[in-house]
Design a protein around this nucleic acid. Sequence first.
DNA 1: CTGAAAGCGCTTACAG
DNA 2: CTGAAAGCGCTTACAG
Lengths: 337, 337
Amino acid sequence: MTTAKDAGVSLADVAKRANVSQATASKALNAKFDVSPKTRARVERAARELGYVPNTLARGLTGGRTGTVGVITSDLDGRFALPILMGVEDALGADRVFAFLCDARGDDLRERQLLKSLIQRRVEGIIIVGNQTDERPSLGQDIGVPIVYAYCMSDDPRDRSITVDNYQVASVAAQHLIDIGRRRIAHISGEAPHSAARRRKDGVVDTLASSGLELSGEPLFGDWSEGWGRAATAMVLDRNPEIDAILCGSDQIARGALDVLRERNISVPQQIAVIGIDNWELLAANSRPSLTTVDLNLERLGRIAAQCLYDPDAADRSGISYEPGAIVIRDSTIPRY
Amino acid sequence: MTTAKDAGVSLADVAKRANVSQATASKALNAKFDVSPKTRARVERAARELGYVPNTLARGLTGGRTGTVGVITSDLDGRFALPILMGVEDALGADRVFAFLCDARGDDLRERQLLKSLIQRRVEGIIIVGNQTDERPSLGQDIGVPIVYAYCMSDDPRDRSITVDNYQVASVAAQHLIDIGRRRIAHISGEAPHSAARRRKDGVVDTLASSGLELSGEPLFGDWSEGWGRAATAMVLDRNPEIDAILCGSDQIARGALDVLRERNISVPQQIAVIGIDNWELLAANSRPSLTTVDLNLERLGRIAAQCLYDPDAADRSGISYEPGAIVIRDSTIPRY
DNA sequence: CTGAAAGCGCTTACAG
DNA sequence: CTGAAAGCGCTTACAG
């Protein structure tokens, strides 16, 4: 058990009890070489008996590793931060590195201050987690430690950014609809200013074109909400009643679409198939019918970002990595029987 | 700008450039007393010119404060951790304390290891964030630093726990329904083994009793999902068609209820009012009609937990604090015109 | 108001 | 294989 008293036990105490020098005690407890098995056993025993708890701070001071990184989220509130954090956690845990979690709350000044504080604490790297996939201003090149942008991307190509491949993600969705035989596909998406909305639209259009198809009607941009999904679906149904599928820019929008289709007694997917993007389980798994969608693999994205920090030749690999998503098939495109 | 080179600048360098001793430089940069304004100005200038970045690690070593706490979540995946983390972040930020975020992933052994690692890093306190409000095994009394349980509660009364007042939260919901004139109220909730489900039921029953009312039909327990909300609502409608309100144990369940009512052309709230618990915005704000619910105030809960860690007489105040929620009125009980 | 000295707990060359 | 010594970067009594 780790108790209060332990905090008072230092390496010197352990060394004394084991009748060795502090240097030897240090080696015995850390490196595996240069210590006789007998001595090591003695030191280890002393450490155990005393309930010795090494002080990581002191170790860091010696110029060695601090074993910490900083994670600055721009907005913890958003839905994307969490899975990314999980991935970061996962990757760091394996190396016994700890993450300082900081929330800039969308405030640039606060972000800068956090950055500075993290440097003071001698973090070995910093991950900036954005709340959208758009470009954001670079924090600069001479931070002193590796820095990587996750989800968002830096506007400076010398920085390393890991983001979602919006184009690919949408292509996968479109291809799936084509694969199940749909030919008259409408597209409803979120906020046009977001690169996510624009790139996804491009992915859809290009993929359809590869099969000699065109979108049924103009793509509709609004926001990423259920409400917009409902409104847009009603519009689409009026303007293009011939459609046999709706490709939605997000799961929230898709939920709205499903809602309206159900209300109008249009069977999904028999008459109209519906597909979302995000694989937000809460939304996708609980709808009627359950929603086919594209998983963004955010946890993986977080893991990659964390690994970049400790990648020896990360410097060579600056620039933006676009990470692919994968389709998750549910009943809104291929119903189970 | 904070640059790579800075990492090499120490207090000694600053002192030299300012022509003072290191001790004086330290005082000039930290404490406000015992240094002449002129000297301080000189030191500050030197520090600025050199781009001096104090090493927080060394400061911590001196026996002073490390300015760090550990936060161990049992499951980042859950929906409750995030708002709590935000509150923690908020409270700590004011004191320039940083939080190590660790995810135990529901693994007790891993949790213990994390606890130990955090102690090695000399955190000044630890917050254990549970993913449900039930009791959990205490981590013990002699950790060496203050420890507080948030959302979940420790089974040892000597520990400090901050959790949701499930009884009050449900009472508020019930009272609201009574206030708008409902008398025949059904209750659909989540998993019976969860104290959240049981205490909420008690709150509902007692509050109704205070007004001389009884629940319409037996309370229904299932899980916290939309699917269960739909199934249970259908049952309730069959067995107790006379009801004029449904009090749901969570917003997810309420979404399911709303869905079925809409399908059956039962107007909400005119014929049947619906209320949830959680105030999960995504769900509550986007339903049709929008959902009245009880906000759990989780951010506040996180803030309180963080403050406890630095509360001088926290020792006296062991035990469990039950934090109240507050109603958020939307269209499912009082429609806007 | 200022500074020399000791110490925080550890690790790392460098001798033996 | 073992140990004495120096040093990591800072702060804190203690003299002056």
